[in-house]
Computed example of a mutant assay.
Amino acid sequence: MTSSDLRPRPDGAAVRRLLRDGVLTVDGRLVEASNTTLRGTLTLDGVSAHCVYKPIRGERPLWDFPDGTLADREVAAYLVAEALGGELVPPTVLRDGPFGTGSCQWWIDEPDGAAPLVGFVAADAVPPGWFPIAAARDDDGTAYTLAHADDPRLARLAVFDAVVNNADRKGGHVLVGPDDRIYGVDHGVTFHVEEKLRTVLWGWAGRTLPADLVAALAVLADRLDADLGEQVAHHLTLGEVAALRARVDRLRSTGRFPLPPRDGPVFPWPPI
């Protein structure tokens, strides 16, 4: 049995058990990642699946995030995404591995030929139903536009990013799974107490939140006051948990997608 036999559903007990208890072997390294990011294979009771393993010892120090905390933030992001609904983040756990403790996340195989929902397109050829976000030119001076689809799955991901204060929502961190779900990955720089939202998903900025997202935020707020608050407190500081609650409350109060900050960067680099 392979990973294709177990759908990456966040409520799947079998998936979480495999992530948590499976024998983890490393297959190779994803060399484009800034921190040590390894592709691995998990095996348990005759079942095998691929995963992304990010050992804490491979995290590069950041000036604005405490050392050795990125793996915990990956797990906290999954817990919040699960409560928000929509299966936005592949199941993720904190566990031991060949290079020590780190985050372990279900691998998402994008189907061959899957059309991206975020990217640079020719300035005069923005697809219908897409939001133009920023203008750009290549070395030859050709004009391009950074844009993304007006897709309710992306809208939910944009709300999730605002909730977790995601400082690095690149277009390449948005995956389309074989089950036609949208997944956000790479959430190590999240949950800062200062406003650091940097994203390519600004298309809905300032617009009214759809009713389903308003309802999802209400559920998330209730969960934070109950079991979820205790769960994320194992991975974040008390100040970061308080800031998380405040961001949820602010989104519910305004009822709108957040606006880009007036000072400081609004896009990650590189954006894709």
Rank of each mutant, 00 (worst) to 15 (best):
N165L: 14
L146D: 04
A167K: 04
G141I: 01
A155E: 09
R153K: 09
V163N: 06
N166E: 08
R153P: 03
L154E: 06
A147N: 13
G141Y: 03
D168F: 06
R169S: 04
H148W: 07
A149I: 04
D140K: 00
G172H: 11
Y144A: 12
G171L: 13
A147L: 12
Y144C: 03
N165V: 13
A155P: 06
K170L: 05
N165I: 14
A143F: 03
V163K: 10
G172N: 11
A143D: 06
D161Q: 07
N165R: 13
A167S: 14
N165D: 15
V163T: 10
V159T: 14
A147G: 12
D161S: 08
A162T: 02
P152R: 05
G172W: 12
Y144V: 01
A162P: 12
L154A: 10
V163F: 14
F160N: 05
H148L: 09
V164Q: 07
N166M: 07
D161R: 05
A147K: 14
D140W: 00
Y144G: 08
K170Y: 01
A158R: 07
F160M: 14
V159H: 14
H148P: 11
V163R: 09
P152E: 04
A167L: 09
A143W: 01
F160P: 13
A143C: 06
N166K: 11
N166P: 15
P152Y: 02
Y144E: 01
A162Q: 06
A162H: 11
R169D: 02
V164Y: 12
N166S: 08
G141E: 01
R156Q: 09
A147R: 14
D150V: 02
R153Y: 01
D168C: 05
V164T: 09
A149E: 10
V159A: 13
